[in-house]
Nucleic acid binder design. Structure first.
Lengths: 217, 217
DNA sequence: CGGAAACTTGATCGAATTCAAATAAGGTGG
DNA sequence: CCACCTTATTTGAATTCGATCAAGTTTCCG
C-alpha cells in the first residue's frame, strides 16, 4: 500500500493482511458488476479500468499504476462498476474489507488517505470527461502523456523526462476515445515534430514546453 | 437534505443547521478552486457543475437536481474542483462542515448515505465519459434524456413520461460535448421521429422503447 | 414594444473514422 | 534458434459526423 493518496506506510502498527493475486498481461483481473469482498491495490504492473458501456464499444476510464487502488469506492462497498484488465503482468494485493475497515477506524491517517485517493480518482475521471468532450485528438494524447508523466514522477518512476510505458496504441485509443489508426497518426506527428520519442516501450518527452502548450492546462 | 443517496431524513435527532443561499438563473453559485467551508446541497432548482478546462471551452460534468450534493468530496475536503452555475433560480442549503461531520460521526446512516451519494456521483461522471468517448450525438442526447428521467422519477418529479426540463439547448450542448447548433438538429430529428416532445420547458418521452434502444444501455 | 437571447435551417468545411493493404513486432511450438 | 502465426503499427484514400459559418425566425423579458 505504497501510494494510496500519495502517502506511504499508512497503516499503524497493525497492517491488514492481504492475498497476492497475479494476472498475465491482457487478462481480465476483475469483471464489472462482480461482488468483491476485498480491496484490491495494484502492487506492480499497469492495468486498465474499462466501463461497461452496454454496447460493444469500450471506454477505458482509468489507467491504474503501481500503488493505485483499483476503485476507491470498493473500500466502502463491494460492487465494482468497471472491468479491470491487466496491461502488463500485474500483481495485485487484495485486502479483506472487514480487516481493512477496522484499520481505517483505528487509523485516521489511513482514512484520510483513502478519501484523498477517492478525490483524486474523481478528479481524474472528470478531467478525462473534459478531454473527451472538448479536446482534439492531439490534445487528448498530449494530456494523457503529461498526466502519466506526472503520476509516475510521484512514484519515482521517471528518469530524464523518460518513463517505461507498456501501453499499446490501442490502449491509448481506448482511453482517449479515438481509433488505434488515428492514434498512430497523431503519435507519428508528435514524433516527427520532435515533441516525443516512443520506442521499445519507453516514452521520452523531448520538448516538455511544447507538449504542455498543446495540453492547454 | 432530502435526496442524499436517495434516502430521506437522514439526520438523527440533531439536524445540523444550514444557511440558505439563493442564486438567480444563469448566475455563478460557486467558483472553481474556491475554498468552501460549507457543504452545499441544492434545495430547489437546477444547476450545472462545469469543469475548469484551462482553455476557454467549457465541459459540464454534472447536472445538479434538487436534493443533490453539489460535490460529495466537499463533505471531507474544502476544495471545489468545478464551477457551479444556476440553470434556474436555485436555493442552496449550506451546512457548516464541522457540524455536518459531527452529525456524520454520530449517525452511521448519514455517513453511509454520503458514501452512496459519492459513489453515485462517481458513476455518473464515468458514464458521461463513456458517452463522450464512444457515443454519437443522438446517443449522447438520448442518454441524457433517459438519465434525467430516471433521476427525476426517483424524486417524484415525473408525470406520465413527462417532466419539467429547464435546460436550454446550450446547456445540453455543454454537457454532451456538442455545439448548440447540432443539439438543435438532433432534437429536431428526435421530435420529427416521434420519440420526444420538448416545448414550453416540458420534455415528454413519446416513445420510451425507441429512445432506450438508441441509448444502448 | 424593442432588444437580446435562443432556436432553426442550410451550405460548407474539417477532424477523425472507416476501409484497405502492406510492413513490423511478438510469441510459440518444434 | 528459427519458422510461423498472430497482434501491432504504418500509410493512404474515401467517407462521415459534427463543427463552423451565415441568415432568418422565434421566444423571452424588461
Amino acid at each position: 500500500l505504497k501510494n494510496v493518496g500519495g502517502a506511504r506506510d499508512n497503516f499503524g502498527g497493525a497492517a491488514p493482511r492481504y492475498i497476492e493475486q497475479t494476472s498475465a498481461a491482457r487478462r481480465k483481473i476483475f469483471q464489472s458488476d462482480q461482488r468483491i469482498d476485498s480491496i484490491p491495490i495494484i502492487a506492480s504492473g499497469w492495468a486498465a479500468a474499462i466501463a461497461n458501456s452496454g454496447h460493444d464499444r469500450r471506454q477505458t476510464i482509468a489507467l491504474l499504476l503501481p500503488g493505485d487502488l483499483v476503485s476507491s469506492a470498493l473500500v466502502f462497498d463491494d460492487k465494482l462498476n468497471v472491468t479491470v484488465e491487466a496491461i502488463t503482468d500485474v500483481c495485485c494485493h487484495n485486502y479483506a474489507r472487514a480487516e481493512f475497515r477496522a484499520a481505517l477506524a483505528a487509523n485516521p491517517n489511513l482514512f484520510e488517505a483513502v478519501l484523498r485517493s477517492w478525490a483524486e480518482e474523481s478528479l481524474q475521471v472528470a478531467q478525462l470527461a473534459v478531454s473527451l468532450g472538448q479536446c482534439t485528438a492531439e490534445e487528448r494524447i498530449a494530456r494523457l502523456i503529461v498526466n502519466l508523466f506526472e503520476r509516475l514522477a510521484k512514484r519515482g518512476m521517471v528518469e530524464n523526462d523518460a518513463f517505461d510505458c507498456p501501453l499499446r496504441q490501442w490502449h491509448i485509443a481506448e482511453y482517449t476515445g479515438l481509433t488505434a489508426v488515428h492514434v498512430s497518426k497523431v503519435l507519428g506527428q508528435l514524433r516527427r515534430d520532435g515533441l516525443i520519442d516512443f520506442k521499445d516501450r519507453v516514452l521520452t518527452i523531448l520538448n516538455p514546453v511544447a507538449l504542455r502548450r498543446i495540453c492547454n492546462i
